[in-house]
Design a protein around this nucleic acid. Structure first.
Length: 475
RNA sequence: CGGGGCGUAGCGCAGCCCGGUUAGCGCGCUUGGUUUGGGACCAAGAGGUCGCGGGUUCGAAUCCCGCCGCCCCGACCA
């Protein structure tokens, strides 16, 4: 059907690249590892921003902006942090034709520049909490890149909060991972497992990291959002203290949390099919496209006038009337399918005469004839149904491909086929995880919040463990 | 960094082994006409430093040497 898209069953990785490129979400740029996000892809990012930004503000956060450049010495102030990020930092050594006195890192993340600033803002418990988010680009020199999933430069948001107590910071860390879960489920229609990262997988410089993990159609895991409790590590590194009610001088507690343009990759790999992109309605910049059908000039006028009359009072961003002359309807059907538009409305002379239109949904391909008079209400219902169906389908897939396994032999034999594996593993010991990765190219994705209270032997060492973790191969 | 692939028109490719007229095909693009309910057709056009540099030769997209770039697969990571 679709021209030039590799089938998922043939080569999943190539299918993904084909969809991104053919749907015009993004394309390769002249710079290795960097991509151009095209209007179709950027429009989805804008929807993500719009909804998430609202959720952040509803939970008391405000936006600000900090510099792209970070003095090298700042990065070095937190030992674990620099160890984690130094290898992947892009450094600026020259500016204005002169060698800089101190090299500047292009931010891989902004904890250091932000905490050096918070030092000036915080002196009393009355200055806390600080609840700030920034929308920004960051740069990480990864060895291997993939469109949207891992690019050298990427867009994201990073929240950086400051609190008086450990408990308050912990509450914030938990709150934000649940904001991400809700966003993933309600907007991306992407079911996720919420949990904690193991010591080996946590953020460099954090006490612990919470995350949401999604399952792609090939059964591989995608880390889709993280929320870190940074404790007093950055406050100590940047000497950020406040005087508390009890007159004591104390270090501030910190959190940080982020999601990136990787979410778009996750959206694509969760819902799209062999005919191309599928965008969940709530993230579609344009949820509905009208394809008018005509033969003569008289019919063209009649059909277009009718389509315009039907949509006259609608939000102009809700639908587009594709009145391009150079393409036949069949071409347009395929194009909008490839580009993932949730609902296509066909309207021709027959429909005008009958006072109806034909609506085709992207997720199932099903077509229904609807009366033109109440179209807007019916479209809203249809879009809501598509949104729900996408989520249900993805959730069913995740449930069906989540397995409980106790033997390491069985795990090794099956993990390559994809899926989430509920296993006992001694994740307190990083060497055990290392062995897991060496043997199977898989990792512990998270220790789920809602894991039943079970006890059993670590599948590798036999050591007694409490609670199962989720292990899988990931992106 | 290891393994593989590719660089020729906007895109996808052929030509290269075995050097030789004016570098070709499909798609797309422009103009005109006919078409239009699942990727239309006819006709006429426009469009090229053959990745870069050097060498061999009367003559190089083609042979030789060097360089560069990008993509894919692994190890590292959101």
């Amino acid at each position: 059907m679709a021209k030039g898209i590799t089938k998922r069953s043939e080569d999943y990785a190539q299918w993904y690249i084909d969809v991104v490129l053919k749907a015009e979400m993004a394309e390769y740029s002249p710079v290795k590892g960097c991509m151009v996000i095209r209007p179709t892809g950027y429009g989805v990012w804008e929807k993500i921003q719009q909804h998430l930004d609202r959720m952040f503000k509803e939970t008391g956060h405000v936006n600000a902006y900090f510099p792209l450049f970070i003095p090298e010495s700042f990065l070095k102030k937190e030992a674990e942090h620099i160890e984690g990020f130094a290898p992947e930092c892009a450094m600026v050594t020259h500016g204005g034709g002169k060698k800089l006195e101190e090299p500047l890192a292009i931010r891989p993340t902004s904890e250091t520049i932000i905490w050096s600033t918070y030092k000036n803002w915080i002196s009393s418990y009355r200055d806390l909490p600080i609840l700030i988010n920034q929308w920004a680009n960051v740069c990480r020199w990864e060895m291997r890149t993939r469109l949207f999933l891992r690019t050298t430069e990427f867009l994201w948001q990073e929240g950086h909060t400051a609190h008086a107590t450990h408990e308050e910071a912990e509450e914030e860390t938990v709150r934000m991972v649940h904001v991400y879960r809700r966003f993933a489920e309600e907007y991306l229609a992407m079911p996720v497992i919420v949990g904690r990262k193991t010591r080996r997988e946590k953020f460099a410089g954090a006490l612990h990291t919470y995350c949401i993990e999604a399952m792609m159609q090939d059964g591989k895991a995608l880390q889709a959002g993280t929320s870190h409790h940074l404790g007093q590590n950055f406050a100590k590194a940047f000497d950020v203290k406040f005087q508390d009610k009890d007159k004591e001088l104390k270090y501030v507690y910190a959190t940080s949390w982020g999601v990136s343009t990787r979410l778009i990759g996750g959206m694509i790999m969760t819902h799209s099919d062999d005919n191309g992109l599928v965008i969940p309605p709530r993230l579609a910049p344009t949820p509905v496209v009208f394809v008018p059908i005509w033969r003569s000039d008289a019919e063209k006028k009649l059909v277009l006038d009718t389509a315009r009359a039907i949509t006259r009072d609608w939000d102009p961003l809700f639908c587009r009337i594709d009145d391009r002359d150079q393409y036949k309807p069949g071409y347009k059907f395929n194009e909008w399918e490839l580009k993932g538009i949730p609902v296509r409305v066909e309207i021709g002379p027959r429909d005008v005469a009958a006072g109806t239109v034909v609506a085709a949904r992207r997720d199932t391909g099903e077509k229904v004839t609807l009366p033109a008079g109440t179209l807007r209400e019916q479209l809203d219902a249809l879009l809501a149904d598509i949104q729900q169906n996408l989520f249900d389908t993805a959730r069913k897939r995740m449930e069906e491909r989540t397995y409980t396994v106790d033997s390491y032999e069985e795990y090794k034999a099956r993990v390559e086929q994809g899926g989430f594996f509920r296993v006992f593993l001694d994740h307190e010991n990083p060497e055990v995880e290392e062995r897991l990765q060496e043997d199977t190219r898989s990792t512990v994705r998270c220790i789920p919040f809602d894991a039943p209270d079970e006890e059993g032997p670590c599948m590798i060492t036999g050591k007694p463990c409490r609670g199962r973790v989720i292990a899988a191969q990931g992106y």
